[in-house]
């Protein structure tokens, strides 16, 4: 873990430690992981911006159906390209010590495909089709499913899930914390 140290000043590390859920050691480890995605580029400039295709080579993201969404959400330029700070931010949100509320916030953004701050029917459809992958549910099944989800979760009956409603679900889920997590 020692070799990455020269690339950061003590001050930067302190900043990262204060602003993420990582310790300094973990930050350095994260940087190693980031570096392994594009060694020569990052070796040159520690905070280099890697294109989304590079970021998606990270094993957990490459097989994740929401991989692209995750990159877009965390990218500071909104196009999926991530700097090291964006990457660190991502890992910190997915780490074990991030609180449920922060994780829920990001999960909501990931699922909110059209970006209207509500999980509407089209968002839900996209989420489900991404989840099931190659196996497609029929249209009637899909509608049934969405109707059921809305029945459970849509407290104010407006046909879409707001963040508060989404958070309500997440609060009551025992598995969310252990599944919405990527080990560094």
């Amino acid at each position: 873990m020692g070799q990455g140290k020269s690339q950061f000043t003590e001050e930067e590390l302190q900043d990262y430690q204060d602003l993420t859920y990582f310790t300094k050691k973990e930050v350095l480890y994260a940087h190693q992981k980031f570096k392994s995605l594009a060694p020569e580029k990052v070796g040159h400039n520690k905070n280099a911006k890697l294109p989304m295709t590079k970021i998606l080579q990270y094993p957990e993201l490459s097989v994740n159906p929401f991989g692209e969404r995750i990159c877009k959400i965390f990218s500071s330029s909104q196009d999926g390209d991530c700097t090291f700070e964006d990457f660190l931010d991502m890992m910190s949100v997915f780490s074990q010590s991030a609180p449920k509320s922060v994780k829920a916030e990001h999960a909501f953004r990931i699922f909110d495909f059209d970006g209207d701050d509500m999980l509407g029917v089209s968002d839900l459809k996209q989420v489900i089709s991404k989840l099931t992958g190659e196996n497609k549910l029929s249209d009637s099944e899909l509608n049934w499913l969405i109707q059921n989800i809305l029945e459970e979760a849509d407290l104010d009956d407006d046909g879409a899930l707001s963040f508060a409603e989404f958070e309500h679900i997440i609060d009551r889920s025992s598995d969310f914390l252990s599944t919405f997590r990527i080990r560094l």
Binding site: V63, S173, F176
Partner: peptide, 25 residues
Amino acid sequence: ETEGGLQNIFANKVFCGWDYNIATE
């Protein structure tokens, strides 16, 4: 905290269904 954890089965399956730890194809 989950009040028995048995409500919202559908929403849970969809929103918490994916295991982000998974790393192989």
